[in-house]
Design a protein around this nucleic acid. Sequence first.
RNA 1: GCCCCCAUCGUCCAGUGGCCUAGGACGCCGCCCUUUCAAGGCGGUAACACGGGUUCGAAUCCCGUUGGGGGUGCCA
Length: 470
Amino acid sequence: MTAAPRVRFAPAPTGYLHVGGARTALFNWIFARQTGGALVLRIEDTDLERSREELVDVVLSTLDWLGIDFDEGPYRQSERLEYYDLAVDKLLGDGRAYRCDCTPDDVKARKEQRGDKTPGYDGFCRDRDLPPGPGVAVRFRTPDEGTVAFDDLVRGHVSFECADLVDFVVQRADATPTFLVANAVDDAEMRITHAIRGEDLLNTVPSVLMLMDALGYEHRPTYAHVPLLVDEKRQKLSKRRHSVAVEEYRDGGYLPEAFVNFLCLLGWGPPDGEEIRPIERTIADFRLQDVTKSAAFFDTKKLDHFNGEYIRALEAADFVERCRPFFDRVEWAPSEWPPGPFVQMAPLVQERVVTLAEVPGLVDFLFLDQVPLDEAAWEKAMKHEAAPAILDATIDAYAEGPWEAEHLHRALAEIGERFGLKLGKAQAPVRVAVTGRTVGPPLFESLEVLGREATLDRLRSARERLAGGR
RNA sequence: GCCCCCAUCGUCCAGUGGCCUAGGACGCCGCCCUUUCAAGGCGGUAACACGGGUUCGAAUCCCGUUGGGGGUGCCA
């Protein structure tokens, strides 16, 4: 009987959750849930500049939005410094590490002097036997020969030559530990069985393995390095050029279910080929071994499609509720919730949007006293010679009769016929006069909700504007 | 430079030696539907990087080339 798996998501707090990080978190979570294992959250903040509490809160709330919950933690490496100190002391005591007072500039300068393009530290302080003191870091003494190999669940067998590994720093001059020791100590101490993370960390495995060995840990996690997420140019997503923060998608009106569904399909494909699927089914079918080896382009076009599908699948009342945050942030934010006019229009809006953020813009004309007139739309719709006559006739026809969509529909269709116009053409001036735009939710339903009074007012003022020249 | 990884339609995945004249999804194009815009329906476009092997047979295995990416930090 093997013990239940233990996995971890270990982000460095940067103030936002990177979409790539979100995906590795998701893969860890799915793996934990399907195996009955535990997911631990560990904040890798050994770099003092990064350890700020509010940065951690962002990660926590965003994971929560995604629906990723964890079973242990968050542990903060900044609160576990004593463990790493002990580890470094052991390394020093056993002669597996040594002190070094070379500054990064020194290392770089010597490298340039050597002329060879070989990078990295040259082992300058290996045998200097320096005493502790300010400006002194600690480096691990890597073996000069031999190989380090391991089996990666997605990459297969991977091996490195020790000779290619430089003496890396385990403790900085300010006495803080580096990622490598903290990682080795924590994965071992926390009994992490599977380290599922981004491929950018593949190269750090040999160092960590050597550290675990030197520290006397017998525990070894099974590694699984998932492919990176890249941009259209196949390069690492950059914060400058792309939306890499999950928060941007949340604020952009994406549904967490859609976002998660999309993320699952980057580097993995469902065995039955059904891409739009509840997370439960992915938890049932996901296999780490099936994760692709090649990098995936984070293509938001597909995300958009998924989001639209998920929005349309929402229960009407749920859709209305989910739109609330997006109404809260417009100038004309409704004072009561849910606002009646929107509730009436919601089903019609729901099947037309790609993101929730678009919703207020489709119904603003119902809330604004002044029509949000778009000049280009006006030009386009009113340039038709029959426009004034259509408005006149519509004002006339809408002055009486039942105020319901079907009737309004029929009346305008008849007016159109009089001018030899199809309804599609005839409704244009009316639509722009009343909603300010050429596109929007179905017109007659919109008018019904708006009411006779407001509709006639807007038609009349459009007519006046037309009479006064443009 | 060196080390590591990767390589199927524009994109994301299927494909694990014969079922492949390579399948699905997104995108794109066309048609239908239509009250604008969507949605929906139908159809179409489009790929095994290249060169050698192995084999009766290769998208699938091996080698090489080319291309791409990651690492090469007292970041993680």
